[in-house]
Every structure is written in structure tokens, then in C-alpha cells.
């Protein structure tokens, strides 16, 4: 008598253990109650410090803060422009990494591996000067492209993981109804993957905001570069970089919070 053969059992609800170490700011979750979360202390502390310095030491702090706003605007433009472009690149890189077509898969994998193996600063220089040889575009545009090409690789991995997190049965159900791969992706898989993908994309946004300071090297007048210009004229290096650091801190903390609120909304609306 042959025994009944069974499929290997999977234990329901048991997720593999993962450790998440982001480089974003510490964002308070619902469960962190109380006034004195690290986020609140850092955010309101930084604002209080900026105000204190402006009021009680107007020279040089008020002059610094008056000098840098157009730099903040450039930093913001670079960050938003790069993240949007990186999302598009990332979507294709992620889909490419999942493609069964060997050539497409190979190209996408190669892109991700090459980009992840080269420091961002080196890539920035390289793409900036490479683009400069081919086309004549403003420094800020090539800075945005360079940042996006780099972040697109990381974004691709996020998309890939997000798409893979959707149960296989969803694709099978869509295909069984006669949808082709693209229709199934657009209508069934990607809308579900978005909720999984959004938190890590938020982290990438904040990381990109910080990394955007690297473009100051490329004659792009962002926050850091504006600060450097002011400092070299007034010889107030310590004071200027204190202010620049505080402004970056306030921005990253602000966006971290905004993103965590968005995430909660999406999770609640699910």
C-alpha cells in the first residue's frame, strides 16, 4: 500500500524574518505616543534653534537665511524631478528584472548591478560630463538625470520586490480571464503593489533629498552651494554650515512625517 503523497505544507501567516535598516529619519508611528518622540524633539528643536539664532544673532544668521532660499528651491526641484524620473526608470528596471525574456532581463540586471557598484558622486561627475559631450543642457537638468539614473536602480529593486510580493494566484486569475501580461500588470498587479512599494519609496525620497546636496559639486546652485558661496564671501564657515545643516534637518524631518502620514492614509483606505 503506497501512502498518500502530500504537497509540502507551508505554515500560514509565517513571514520570513526581515531586519529593516533605513537611512531615513526616525518617524514616529502610531504606537509611539507622548510629546517627546525623537522626531518631535529633533524637528521642533531645530526650528527653535533657527529662530533663536536669527533673533539673537542676526549677524550673520539672518543674512545667511536671507541668502539661501533660492538654494532650497533648487534642492527641492532636483529632488522632486529626480524622484519622478527615477520612478519611471525604476518601474521599467523592475519589470525588466522580472521579465522572462533573457535579453531584457540581462539588460535590466546589468543596469542595476553597474549602478549599485559605483559611488553616487562618481556617477554624478561621469553622467554630467558624458551628457555634456553629447547635448547642451542646463546643469540642473543633467544633475536631475544623473540622480535619477542612480536612484532608478534602487527603485527598480523596490518595484521588483513589490511586484513579487503579490500572490501568484492574482496573475493566474487575470491571465485566466484572457488578459495579456500588460493588462494584468496594469489592472491587477501594480495597483496592489503600490501599497507595498510606497513606504520604501518614501524612504528613497528622503534619502534622495539628502544626497541631492552632492549636486552642489556640479555648478548647481542648491542649498549647500548657496551656503558655500555665502561662507566664502563672509568667512563665516561654521555659522553658515550650522544653518545649512539645520535647514536640511528640518526639510528631511518634515518630509519623513508627511510620507508617514500618507502611508497611514493608504493603509487605512485599503
Amino acid at each position: 500500500m503506497a501512502p498518500l503523497r502530500r504537497k509540502p505544507k507551508t505554515i500560514a501567516g509565517q513571514e520570513p524574518l526581515t531586519i529593516e535598516v533605513g537611512d531615513g529619519a526616525a518617524i514616529p508611528r502610531r504606537k509611539d505616543v507622548g510629546m517627546f518622540t525623537a522626531w518631535r524633539v529633533a524637528f521642533f528643536g531645530a526650528i527653535a534653534m533657527v529662530l533663536y539664532l536669527i533673533f539673537f544673532t542676526p549677524d550673520p544668521y539672518r543674512n545667511i537665511i536671507a541668502f539661501v532660499p533660492d538654494g532650497i528651491w533648487v534642492t527641492f526641484k532636483v529632488t522632486v524631478g529626480a524622484i519622478l524620473l527615477a520612478l519611471v526608470i525604476g518601474l521599467f528596471a523592475g519589470l525588466g528584472r522580472l521579465a522572462t525574456n533573457r535579453v531584457i532581463n540581462g539588460i535590466a540586471s546589468l543596469y542595476v548591478e553597474v549602478i549599485r557598484g559605483i559611488p553616487l558622486l562618481v556617477q554624478l561627475f561621469y553622467i554630467y560630463y558624458a551628457l555634456g559631450r553629447i547635448v547642451n543642457i542646463p546643469a540642473i537638468t543633467s544633475a536631475i538625470i544623473a540622480m535619477a539614473v542612480c536612484y532608478g536602480a534602487y527603485m527598480g529593486e523596490i518595484f521588483r520586490a513589490g511586484i513579487q510580493s503579490i500572490p501568484k494566484g492574482q496573475m493566474e486569475a487575470a491571465r485566466s480571464l484572457g488578459m495579456n501580461k500588460t493588462q494584468a500588470m496594469v489592472h491587477v498587479i501594480l495597483p496592489q503593489a503600490v501599497t507595498v512599494i510606497l513606504p520604501p519609496i518614501g524612504n528613497e525620497f528622503v534619502a534622495l533629498l539628502k544626497d541631492s546636496s552632492l549636486v552642489s559639486i556640479l555648478a548647481v546652485a542648491d542649498l549647500l552651494r548657496r551656503g558655500r558661496e555665502f561662507a566664502s564671501e563672509s568667512f563665516t564657515y561654521f555659522e553658515t554650515y550650522t544653518m545649512v545643516a539645520l535647514v536640511y534637518l528640518i526639510m528631511t524631518l518634515f518630509f519623513s512625517k508627511l510620507i508617514s502620514i500618507m502611508e497611514e492614509r493608504i493603509r487605512a483606505g485599503k
Binding site: A173, R175, G178
Partner: peptide, 18 residues
């Protein structure tokens, strides 16, 4: 895809679009 339009499939795990 044309063939699948004519062949309905119901799964053990429903696979409803959540």
C-alpha cells in the same frame, strides 16, 4: 489569450482582486 476568454477558471484560493 483568445482561448482563455472562452475557458473560465475557478481556483481553490479564490484569487479575487482585493
Amino acid at each position: 489569450n483568445k482561448v482563455r476568454e472562452e475557458v473560465g477558471m475557478v481556483f481553490q484560493s479564490f484569487n479575487i482582486f482585493p
